[in-house]
Design a protein around this nucleic acid. Structure first.
Lengths: 188, 188
DNA sequence: CACCTTATATTTGGGCCCGAACAATTCTGA
DNA sequence: TCAGAATTGTTCGGGCCCAAATATAAGGTG
């Protein structure tokens, strides 16, 4: 409840602070993408995922391996939208719980392969239908055509960032070093 | 690049695994919401936020306080879409960096008020326009009308979850206790 | 072979994230 | 008045998150 009214309300306040230079419609898209992502994630975690003790990310990783079968970790990370370092941790959690298996690549010693265990397979057979049912619930106010329209619009956003984002960042930073994070590992 | 083709590809594989019971369009909406949210967040963090050493969440908190002025922390958390506990940490970080100030509520001793310092105010004056510019960039493939359509669709998703989500979860769990997280604090 | 470059997964530090437990305060009702 | 209920911010445990640093392995070049 806080959100919907406040987003549009906030736009006016932002505009007042800056003198009418705000790109409203674009701002609304970004704000609502993020708000929707949080709402959906929260709903899924609190309805179907919590009961089987999975986080959103853990579920996504499981899903990727389920769909694609045994896969190299670099691809799983890419598909799941997380960094390799994060995947190492998540895969460890799933491995400890006996849902996933690590294996060495037969010919390339650098690679690690992830696959589901029988338990993992059984879990996904059970959980995915429930998950998909909730996907239908959260989009319940949209017709099929609306769904396709919204999905298509979002795809264009993703595409824009994936295709032109890197170049854009180069331009913005003017070739300058890309400012290290304050957090993160230091040289020993 | 990995994403676009794989999402639709994955749908077919998921369907094969379950025998045509998958709700495609709804699944595509959720998948793309999340993918777009990640892409947008990553772009913003790596372009404008990194340079001023702000995380996405820290920026959002700053933005909320900037727009609404001195506010009770519970409202800030609500608006920023994070839990109270998380806000305590983020506000601490921002306070240490001198961007935000804590103050006691004049009449209710339980409340804490957050406001921007002069440095915080100056920072937002400088950073927000750049941020908004990138919001325009990531939505660059959408016209104004597309933006409004997509935003409206997302709003309906948010609304659906906010208005009917709680009830839905009740129904799904059948009044059963909502399964505690595995992580989290234990009784002393 | 020895060296160097490249490519991979893991480790690590700082930070975010949730929600239960907790402490402090305010409100309520007998 | 005053004990219990309710509301708030903080603390805390386990987990996710990134990117830099690191270790290991492959491939290439002399």
């Amino acid at each position: 409840m806080p959100g919907q009214r406040s987003i549009t309300e906030a736009e006016k306040l932002a505009e007042a602070k800056l003198g009418g230079r705000v790109r409203h419609d674009q701002m609304a898209v970004v704000a609502n993408i993020y708000r929707a992502a949080s709402a959906v994630r929260q709903h899924l975690e609190n309805s179907v995922l919590r009961g089987v003790d999975l986080t959103w990310t853990a579920f996504v990783v499981l899903w990727v391996v389920w769909i694609w079968g045994e896969s190299e970790t670099r691809h799983v990370a890419e598909e799941a939208g997380i960094s390799k370092g994060t995947l190492t941790g998540v895969a460890g959690t799933l491995e400890r719980r006996g849902l996933v298996r690590r294996a060495n690549h037969p010919t390339d010693g650098r690679l690690v392969l992830l696959s589901l265990t029988d338990d993992g397979e059984k879990l996904m057979q059970r959980v995915f239908p429930a998950f998909n049912e909730e996907e239908a619930f959260v989009t319940g106010q949209l017709g099929e055509a609306d769904c396709r329209t919204v999905a298509a619009g979002l795809r264009r956003v993703v595409l824009q960032v994936e295709e032109k984002g890197e170049e854009r960042r180069q331009d913005l930073l003017g070739g300058a070093a890309p400012a290290p994070r304050r957090s993160g590992r230091r040289k020993a």
